[in-house]
Amino acid sequence: FNLPIIEEITLRDIPYHQQKEEIIEYCKQNKRVFMSDIANDLKLDLGDVYDIVNELIDEGVLGVRDDNRL
């Protein structure tokens, strides 16, 4: 029988400032993004992506769209 396959991603170990720059560029190229997509596509740690994205939001570099509003 066929077992589900989990894709293994090798994370890149790059400096914080480079991660931040790549996340900004990724968001510019992809108007609607999810943090998990950023982490997967850029091969970055999801926790680091959350931290950096939240920092960018606080700095006013990125905005947030909340689709859960009534």
Rank of each mutant, 00 (worst) to 15 (best):
Leu62Pro: 07
Ile6Glu: 09
Leu44Trp: 04
Ile9Gln: 00
Asp66Asn: 15
Leu46His: 09
Asn30Val: 12
Gly47Val: 10
Gly63Trp: 05
Leu3Gly: 00
Asn30Glu: 12
Asp41Ser: 08
Val53Asn: 05
Gln18Asp: 11
Phe34Trp: 13
Ile38Gln: 03
Gly47Ile: 11
Tyr50Pro: 00
Ile5Arg: 06
Leu3Arg: 07
Lys43Gln: 12
Glu21Thr: 11
Leu46Ala: 04
Asn30Tyr: 14
Asp67Thr: 14
Pro4Arg: 06
Asp66Leu: 14
Asp58His: 13
Ile9Met: 02
Gly63Glu: 11
Leu62Glu: 05
Leu56Gly: 02
Ile9Gly: 00
Tyr50Asn: 07
Lys20Tyr: 05
Glu22Gly: 01
Asn54His: 12
Glu25Met: 08
Gly60Arg: 06
Leu56Glu: 04
Glu7Ser: 07
His17Met: 10
Gly47Cys: 05
Leu44Arg: 02
Val53Ile: 11
Asn54Asp: 13
Lys43Thr: 05
Tyr26Pro: 00
Leu44Cys: 00
Val61Thr: 15
Asp37Ile: 04
Val49Trp: 04
Ile57Asp: 03
Tyr26His: 09
Phe34Met: 11
Ala39Thr: 09
Asp67Cys: 09
Leu3Pro: 00
Glu22Cys: 04
Lys31Phe: 08
Phe1Trp: 09
Cys27Val: 15
Glu55Tyr: 10
Val49Cys: 04
Val61Cys: 03
Gly60Pro: 08
Ile14Asn: 04
Leu3Lys: 08
Ala39Lys: 09
Asn40Met: 13
Asn68Val: 04
Asp48Leu: 10
Val33Tyr: 12
Leu70Glu: 15
Gln18Gly: 00
Leu42Phe: 11
Arg32Met: 13
Glu8Lys: 10
Arg69Cys: 12
Pro4Cys: 01
Asp48Cys: 10
Val53His: 09
Ile5Gln: 09
Ser36Glu: 14
Leu56Pro: 05
Leu70Asn: 15
Asp37Trp: 13
Glu7Asp: 08
Phe34His: 11
Arg69His: 13
Asp51Gln: 10
Glu7Leu: 10
Lys20Cys: 06
Glu7Gln: 09
Glu55Ala: 05
Leu44Asp: 02
Asp67Asn: 15
Glu55Ser: 11
Val64Leu: 15
Ile57Met: 07
Cys27Met: 13
Asn40Tyr: 14
Glu59Thr: 01
Tyr50Val: 11
Glu55Arg: 10
Ser36Trp: 14
Ile57Asn: 02
Lys43Ile: 03
Lys43Val: 03
Gly63Pro: 00
Arg65Phe: 15
Glu7Arg: 07
Leu56Gln: 05
Glu7Val: 11
Gly47His: 11
Pro4Asn: 03
Leu44Thr: 01
Leu62His: 06
Met35Ala: 01
Ala39Tyr: 12
Leu70His: 15
Ile38Lys: 01
Pro15Arg: 02
Asn30Thr: 12
Leu11Thr: 02
Asp41Thr: 08
Gln18Cys: 03
Lys28Gly: 02
Glu8Gly: 06
Asn40Cys: 10
Asp37Cys: 04
Val64Asn: 08
Tyr26Gln: 02
Ile52Gly: 07
Ser36Pro: 04
Asn68Thr: 15
Glu55Cys: 08
Val49Ile: 03
Ser36Gln: 13
Asn40Glu: 14
Leu46Ser: 06
Glu21His: 10
His17Leu: 13
Asn30Phe: 14
Leu3Asp: 06
Asp48Thr: 07
Thr10Gly: 03
Asp67Leu: 15
His17Ile: 12
Asn54Pro: 02
Asp66Cys: 11
Met35Trp: 04
Glu21Lys: 12
